[in-house]
Nucleic acid binder design. Structure first.
Lengths: 262, 262
DNA sequence: GACTATTTGTACGTATGTATC
DNA sequence: GGATACATACGTACAAATAGT
């Protein structure tokens, strides 16, 4: 057999989806219908649809008027450059204003804990592995749907200098600005971008359907003297993209005017 | 049933993997062994391992000494900031020197075609949809394994001005530098980062196992007068990360010395 | 090269459970 | 409750890939 039946069936359905013959939100034929159409058993049909689910193309909904549904995606744009580097462009609550500027409703859950640092995080912060750190965690919702989670780690010795970091509520002015006002001016940062499948915890938290990867943005911030924090943003890959601009701001404003606003 | 059997089995195996009890490259118990261990049918065992495969945790190898193997990942770092913005830091072949600096062997396949622009690309380039464009495509191999693909689109009218863009071979000095020497100096760019599951074509080209997402880096480059190109980098998510630094170079050099070199 | 043993892959059948309308 | 859809779980059989004899 050149190509297994279930792959042929998946290819046939995939073609109808990407070509637009099956639009977003539309239902695929039901399993019994697909059995008849392709002359195979139900299990073989399910092997085919499982492939599409894991590609993130369709989502299954049980029940009378359920079925395999072509997934739609509303993409929120997250501007990596707008949040940092103190100055006139830094905003009170950068993420919230981003979301609202794009016409959505923003909310977040904040939580503070003290954690033992994993080796890779300790390395980024230039502290001993197993050191303690303050973790400020923020689950972010767009239109009441979880969209991303941010984990920001501060070395413990910094938190003892800047006691506000231990405040168990969101800091309205932003921690970057707070630290700057106390002499910890961020003069540079190191950004990493990674894509992988979510852990089960992340999938539950972000309510990602099977076949949805996460996009990680890991930012290490430095003053002129030391690393001051590591921030890990975990984005549901089907609902977010990250944008960053470089070079002459007038040029960007000319060709991406929507970026200059907000 | 609170939690389905196949999910319980997957959770049990997952725990042994993430805890390190099952190290990278090691084999999971075989299907018959798992049937005995958990007292379930082979199909149920396969449902469990399929979950792990789609999470990118394990990979299946058929055959006598095959099995389900815990995946290992060698991560190549791609520096987004080192490639662009003409100046003393721009290198002859930025990607190649990156890879070799990290101790791997680099090679690439180059191909030039003329394409009709899709709507989203035409928008980025500020040209009419369905316009023609030059596509310079580069498949990049690390240690002879495909690692990423780069698609760079130049508007057709620019290619008629800069005929070298139509050369069907790699331009050693780099197209950014070539364009700059002809007066098309890149003064800014717009970066987008996206994570999604690969299309079957991408999965074949990059030889990604099931459960591996791709990481997309889309860069639109501008002179002071116009967009001059869109470059789409498709990275196999299990083998690549993208890094970008901002702010005072001395600070970065102090805390990430490995970034200053190479 | 032929053969065998082991392991995963494909494909079928059946039965029952759960969610939704 | 009844109808319809997907989800779970069992069983069976044979195919394909791989390593060793």
């Amino acid at each position: 057999m050149a190509e297994p039946k279930y792959r042929q069936i998946a290819a046939s359905l995939r073609e109808r989806i990407v070509s637009g013959a099956l639009a977003e939100g539309e239902r695929l034929p039901t399993e019994p219908q697909l059995q008849d159409m392709f002359g195979v058993s139900r299990n073989t049909v399910r092997d085919a649809t499982a492939l599409l689910v894991n590609e993130g193309l369709v989502e299954s909904v049980p029940g009378r008027s359920g079925g395999m549904i072509v997934r739609k995606r509303v993409t929120l744009t997250f501007h990596a450059h707008r949040v940092e580097m103190p100055g006139p462009t830094a905003e009170t609550d950068a993420w919230r204003s981003e979301v609202e500027h794009q016409g959505y409703e923003a909310s977040q859950d904040f939580q503070l804990t003290i954690e033992v640092l994993a080796a890779d995080l300790a390395e980024r912060l230039h502290v001993e592995p197993e050191s303690a750190a303050v973790l400020r965690r923020c689950v972010r919702y767009v239109n009441d749907e979880p969209s991303s989670v941010q984990f920001t780690f501060y070395p413990m010795d910094l938190a003892t200098e800047v006691r506000e970091l231990l405040s168990p509520t969101d800091i309205p002015q932003g921690t970057t600005r707070l630290l700057a006002s106390l002499g910890y001016v961020q003069t540079g940062y190191y950004d990493e971008y990674v894509s992988r499948m979510p852990t089960p915890e992340e999938a539950t938290l972000l309510r990602t359907p099977p076949g949805t990867p996460v996009l990680l943005h890991i930012r290490t911030g430095y003053t002129k003297d030391r690393p001051v924090r590591v921030s890990i943003n975990v984005f549901a890959g089907d609902r977010n993209r990250i944008v960053s601009t470089h070079g002459d701001p007038r040029v960007i404003a000319k060709f991406r005017p929507e970026e200059a606003a907000g």
